[in-house]
Amino acid sequence: MSSDDVSEAQAPGTTLVSDGPVRWERACLLTDLFPERGAAALFGDVQVALFRLAEDPADPVQAGQVYAVQNLDPFSGAHVMSRGIVGTRAGVPTVAAPVYKQVFSLLTGECLVAADKTPKGDLPADLVTYPVEIRDGVVHVGLP
């Protein structure tokens, strides 16, 4: 893919709720991410799951967007959220944990379907979300 394609694929900037100052880290090229699947990124000890949604002419708001949540699956304790299936529930983009199939909102990290399970140890059921910005075809993640 040429660099022109990359800039064309640039999605509108996304800013998610975050308290305090944000340290922006470079994750990868947008084209490194497979549409409609996740990938993990490593920043020191912090693992982040990135999801690039498919282009969808019928849905200009979320289509092509990149979302970031914690890679730690609270229900299994394993760092696997990036390997879940993405989808929608009532129009909300979601990811399903690959171990025990809980469903989380990619917008807020909220656990929408607990599937009769409780989180492991004292982990919160909801996922931490991270702001994402695409600058010149490069995915940046905002870490606290």
Partner: peptide, 13 residues
């Protein structure tokens, strides 16, 4: 026929 219905972890597999 729902806008933005790109499937989910049930129907995709």
């Amino acid at each position: 026929p729902v806008v933005g219905s790109r499937g989910c972890d049930i129907c995709k597999p």
